[in-house]
Nucleic acid binder design. Structure first.
Length: 276
DNA sequence: AGTTAAACCTGGTTGC
DNA sequence: TGCAACCAGGTTTAAC
């Protein structure tokens, strides 16, 4: 589920409430994608700092000593969500990580367990640095110009949809928002990335940005499991133009939205509105 | 080297 | 009703 908007909405929900909190207990459930990388009890007494986001990862600074840069790198995978509770109920079957602090319990619920919580001595050191190494630029970074975006697209011959999902040209757009941005830009998902024109690349970058912004404003998308740190669902899915709308009519041209598979992922698009 | 498949895991939905 | 097949927000690793 969680693409950039959902992860950012989650970050905003836990950042201020957790700031300055002290870790009182750590509870682990079933294994996640990667091991924690430290003794859970070694986190006790850690002080929580400002929560940051990089791509679809969250960085929770957890200083064990004054001035330390260590922390936890979190990923929500496909089905993960974080909730911050003052009085946490008993852990359920899919609650795989609890960080009990003086300012509430941060709990990761993740049925499919593609998510991760990994301790790292610093954001710029392994293992965090290694996991973030291949990420492209942030979509709202002013340094990401349309020229730079175009240059990145020119380096790939794979379909534009697949390249968007890859996150090398820009991070943050997952399956929902990659489909929606391509629709908004009027670009066929099968178009070769390196065949895209300069004006279309510019239009696509703008579409990625506006799609992610709109989703952020609506609290993200909730297909099944996602909710923010306070249990509130997203609302973007209700206004998706193409995503999960195969066989339905396009609200722009009246044609029929199609579903195809690219790189093992469903792609939804409108053949009338999106051209090669 | 670069693109595509397989893998990780659980559960909901669909169709016979 | 039962059960098999397919589908789902992601990303790494292995294989063409």
């Amino acid at each position: 589920m969680p693409e950039l908007p959902e992860v950012e909405v989650t970050r905003r929900g836990i950042d201020m409430p957790l700031r300055g909190a002290t870790v009182r207990a750590v509870r682990m459930g079933k294994p996640l994608r990667w091991p924690l990388g430290c003794e859970p009890d070694s986190l006790l007494g850690g002080r929580v700092g400002p929560v940051q986001r990089r791509g679809k990862y969250l960085w929770l600074p957890l200083a064990l000593t004054e001035g330390a840069d260590s922390g936890l790198l979190l990923h929500l995978g496909m089905s993960g969500s974080l909730s911050l509770m003052t009085a946490a109920p008993e852990a359920g079957a899919h609650d795989h990580f609890d960080l009990v602090t003086t300012q509430g319990t941060l709990r990761l619920n993740d049925p499919r367990r593609f998510g991760a919580v990994v301790w790292s001595p610093a954001l710029h050191l392994p293992p965090a640095a290694k996991l973030l190494a291949r990420l492209g630029p942030e979509p709202f970074d002013a340094a990401l110009t349309s020229a730079r975006f175009l240059a990145a697209l020119k380096q790939r011959s794979a379909p534009i949809k697949t390249v968007l999902l890859g996150g090398q040209a820009v991070v943050g757009a997952g399956n929902i928002y990659a489909c929606e941005a391509l629709f908004q830009a009027g670009i066929h998902p099968a178009l070769r990335s390196d065949r895209i024109s300069r004006p279309r690349a510019e239009k696509l970058l703008a579409a990625v940005r506006s799609t992610l912004t709109r989703a952020l404003d609506l609290g993200g998308s909730t297909l099944r499991d996602f909710s923010d740190a306070h249990g509130v669902s997203g609302a973007y899915q209700a206004e998706a133009a193409v995503y999960a709308r195969a066989g339905l009519s396009c609200h722009r041209c009246g044609g029929t939205v199609r579903r195809v598979v690219q790189a093992q992922r469903s792609t939804f698009f409108c053949p009338g509105c999106q051209r090669r």
